[in-house]
Design a binder for these strands. Structure first.
Length: 852
RNA sequence: GCCCUCGUGGCGGAAUGGUAGACGCUGGAGACUUAAAAUCUCCUGACUGCAAGGUCAUGCGGGUUCGAGUCCCGCCGGGGGCACCA
């Protein structure tokens, strides 16, 4: 049933059809069946207190159009939405107000849901998930246990931002110009025990499998650069005074070994203390102290000029026994390679700069005409035994000979670092880990087949702590209530203050637990334990949500094999380019782990990826609260309706482009929808009398309809919504000039419009007497026979310049077209009296006459 | 510094190597109206010409081609990513 309004009252029409869809579960996706499946996914939002931003509906409208189009094409479409609801803002709000982050999060979700529903997206709300729901994060924790068991999770001391004034750990984004964002207090780097995931073990596969996905090239390249594979060699340099074993360095240029004139250790390198000679100790200690105070960022930003200090020690070059001084400098970082390098100033820009500053010798070993440093290719010189060899050959040969002598080997290094996976926060998934003593761990190990091959441990104040996982049957581990969301004050999360939750008697077989203040229960399976107080980062929940949508209420598995087999992975994934590296890399990592576990059958989670561009404010600047140029969907829905908003978002420009918002231009698409309304509905609200079930419409209109069907379909497939809308506008303009239109043509046109402006399309569909929903009607087909023109327009060029155009019969050959062109009054004068040099003829398109 | 992208009317943008500026906005003229709004029609890159037309024009400079916004080389500018990774 349509509404009763006589003019285009979008504020009645839109809620009416939204209610219809909801009442009829129009968009529910049933798992299984004979229809082919199509899974189209948005990056689910963080439900912030600010509500929906105009950038959200841009990507969401795009996927909604695809979802509705695919349904009409006969696909069983899965189009879900959920909430990435753990995170810092809710926690900060809780600290400020004392309300539980869950309450705040729930309120934000209600608001987001209201806004998203008002946009009329065809989500299957029966599959809504939230990462903060224990029924969801049970499986986030379960995945962590699998990582743990496979030795892919470990603990390590890692530096974090620490603010002594606030007595808390800060995230990178909470530190602005070396001060805390809140209060502007100084911050420092401090080592804390952290959970780390061994993503580096998957570096090679994460790199190699990029070849298999349909992603923007720029995104693939960013991931490649982030993984940063480089081939080279590890080389051992013996010490002149062997106070320790040899120094191991990594180099990509073993061919330049003869040009090594000094070595550099990172300030944090463990051998610095061992090999520094007594006279140099004070200088080295002072240098290490100044660099330790700097963050990685400061080290790169402030160290415009190279700095360093000599250790007093010498190493011996394994290829020629040369004596090379060992320096300490912060241009070498501990986290990459071995934290030690051989310096070849002649062929490395950084080494050259350092050598110049400290007057160290420079020896050229690669020949070439250009001045030093020469980092390009060439043949070797000054390298006895290798002179004259091309560098690539020398690389292989020297590496092989070092390996034969046990002084080195070919290796591959990655820039990718292991993933710091813990936060000292309340509002995140708790780790299902209990720390126990060594003896208790070994007793538990006998009863637990699910422990890693080597235990995860750390030492504090001389005591070893062993990580014992909760049994899977004890999941989920939920967050306890806390009296304060403020951190503990010593770098631990607020969970460290909840003693009854934290300090427990733990049954290692069943996962049962009791506060440690109570007496130890009977039985030999109860051990004293302390829970992990870190929580997981926001990435955790978003790493696998696309799998949960397949089977959102399953409490036996994170997703059933049947659902996985039927739905597979998303066929299209749309989201911002800001997630090009981290989210997409982390999710790929987890997916590969799940593949190795046999949980998922594919090696990659996202086969086709697309990034929507950013919408700027009307001033051309990035939208932000402080600039006051933020556009909210709510006000636009009220003033113009959501169909207009959706259409306009898509009409702004190419989906992937960055484009400014404009209030003036929205009137254009609004007029277009009004025009469509008028073509269907007369002033009194009845069907426009020009629509006829029997009378013939102009042939040109029929032809244009078929062209439009083809164009809109092609453009939706290619996510070119702006040109699809343009094609529909052209049709509407022609329609408006036609005295009669067949009812069938009008219905077909409404179907084309339906994915873009679904509410208006439903309304007009119903008014023309069709049964709702238009979403269930089969997508119109274009008839290629209708697209054939009677005549072709040929552009006549002379020497490549347009000189006229002629109409010729379809299929006309060159001779025929040339003859016509020579008679044509506008083009003929340009060739008169000239001799033809060449004729280029493109059938149906162009005739180019080249004259002297 | 390195890597990647994008530069087209007054504006957003369109153009498988084949009529540059589709579609929309803005602006102008007209129709309808007592009037206005809405709607409809025509015009709207620059220069030149009475006109037909001509010339120039896709950031700048070269090149390939019968023909270049599109391909190649070198610059300039905007945006993004990485950043002492040996």
């Amino acid at each position: 049933m349509p509404t009763a309004c006589t003019d285009y009252a979008f504020n009645q029409i839109e809620p009416h059809w939204q209610k219809f869809w909801e009442d009829h579960h129009t968009f529910r996706a049933e798992t299984g069946g004979a229809r082919p499946k199509y899974y189209v996914l948005d990056m689910f939002p963080y439900p912030s207190g600010a509500g929906l931003h105009i950038g959200h509906p841009e990507g969401y409208t795009a996927t909604d159009i695809v979802a509705r189009y695919k349904r009409a094409q006969g696909f069983n479409v899965l189009h879900p939405i959920g909430w990435d609801a753990f995170g810092l803002p809710a926690e900060q709000h809780a600290v400020k107000t004392g309300t539980h982050p869950a309450a705040n999060t729930a309120a934000n979700i209600v608001n987001f849901k209201r806004q998203i529903k008002a946009l009329g997206f065809s989500y299957d709300w029966d599959r809504e998930v939230s990462t903060t729901d224990p029924a969801y994060f049970k499986w986030t924790q379960w995945i962590f246990l699998q990582l743990f068991r496979r030795g892919l999770a470990y603990v390590d001391e890692r530096p974090v931002w620490w603010c002594p004034e606030l007595r808390t750990v800060l995230a990178n984004e909470e530190v602005v110009d070396g001060k805390s964002e809140v209060g502007g207090f100084p911050v420092e780097r401090r080592n804390l025990r952290q959970w780390v995931l061994r993503i580096t073990a998957y570096a090679e596969r994460l790199l190699a499998d990029l070849k298999e996905v349909n992603w923007p090239d720029s995104t693939k390249r960013m991931q490649e650069a982030w993984i940063g594979r480089s081939e080279g060699a590890e080389v051992l340099f013996g010490l002149e005074t062997p106070v320790s074993g040899p120094l191991k360095i990594f180099t990509t240029r073993p061919d330049t070994l003869f040009g090594c004139t000094y070595m550099v250790l990172a300030p944090e390198h463990p051998l610095v203390d061992v090999l520094t000679t007594p006279p140099q100790r004070d200088a080295v200690a002072a240098y290490r102290k100044t660099t330790a105070g700097k963050s990685d960022l400061e080290r790169t930003e402030l160290a415009k000029e190279k700095s360093g200090v000599f250790t007093g020690a010498y190493a011996l070059n394994p290829v020629n026994g040369g004596r090379v001084p060992i320096w300490v400098a912060d241009y070498v970082v501990m986290g990459y390679g071995t934290g030690a390098i051989m310096a070849v100033p002649a062929h490395d820009g950084r080494d050259f700069e350092f050598a110049t500053r400290f007057a160290l010798p420079v020896v050229r070993v690669i020949d070439g005409p250009d001045p030093l440093p020469h980092t390009g290719d060439g043949r070797l010189i000054n390298s006895p035994g290798y002179d004259g060899l091309p560098w690539a050959e020398a690389k292989a040969k020297i590496t092989a000979e070092l390996a034969a002598r046990g002084a080195g080997r070919a290796t591959v290094n990655y820039k990718l670092r292991d993933w710091l996976f813990s936060r000292q926060r309340y509002w995140g998934e708790p780790f299902p880990i209990v720390w126990v003593g060594e003896a208790d761990y070994h007793r538990a190990a006998a009863a637990r087949p699910d422990l890693p091959a080597s235990p995860v441990t750390y030492r504090q104040d001389g005591v070893a702590h062993f990580a014992l996982p909760l049994p899977e049957s004890a999941l989920p581990l939920t967050l306890p209530e806390v009296s304060s969301y403020l951190p503990s004050g010593d770098g631990e999360s607020p969970l460290a203050n909840v003693t009854p939750w934290l300090e427990i008697w733990f049954n290692f077989a069943t996962g049962e637990h009791l506060p440690a203040s109570q007496p130890r229960p009977a039985g030999d399976r109860w051990v004293r334990g302390r829970r992990e107080t870190n929580t997981m980062p926001q990435w955790a929940g978003s790493c696998w949500y696309y799998l949960r949508f397949l089977d959102p209420t399953n409490d036996q598995a994170l997703v059933s094999p049947e659902a996985l087999r039927y739905w597979g992975v998303p066929d299209l994934y749309v989201g911002g380019a800001e997630h090009a590296v981290l989210h997409l890399l982390y999710a790929r990592f987890w997916h590969k782990v799940l593949f190795d576990l046999g949980v998922v059958p594919q090696t990659e989670p996202f086969t086709r990826l697309f990034h929507q561009g950013i919408i700027l404010g009307e001033d051309g600047e990035k939208m932000s609260k402080s600039r006051g140029n933020v556009v909210s969907p709510d006000t636009l829905i009220a003033s113009h309706g959501t169909d207009t908003l959706r259409l306009y978002l898509m009409f702004l420009g190419p989906l992937e482009a960055m484009k400014p918002w404009s209030m003036q231009q929205i009137e254009g698409v609004h007029r277009f929808l009004h025009k469509v309304w008028r073509e269907c509905v007369a002033a009194d609200g009845t069907v426009n009398p020009k629509i006829s079930p029997t009378a013939a419409e102009p042939a040109a209109l029929t032809k244009l309809l078929h062209e439009t069907i083809r164009k809109v379909g092609d453009d939706i497939e290619g996510l070119r919504f702006n040109t699809a809308i343009s094609a529909m506008m052209i049709f509407a303009n022609t329609l408006q000039k036609a005295p009669v239109v067949s009812r069938a043509s009008m219905l077909a046109f409404l179907q084309l419009l339906a994915p873009f402006a679904p509410h208006l399309a439903e309304e007009l569909w119903a008014r023309l007497g069709e049964a709702p929903s238009i979403q269930r009607a089969a997508w119109p087909r274009f008839d290629p026979a209708r697209l054939v023109a009677a005549e072709d327009k040929i552009v006549v060029q002379v020497n490549g310049r347009r000189r006229g155009e002629i109409m010729v019969p379809v299929g006309a050959g060159q001779e025929e077209v040339l003859a016509l062109a020579l008679q044509n009054e506008s083009s003929a004068p340009h060739v008169a009296g000239k001799s033809f040099k060449r004729i280029i003829f493109v059938p149906g398109k162009i005739l180019n006459i080249v004259v002297e």
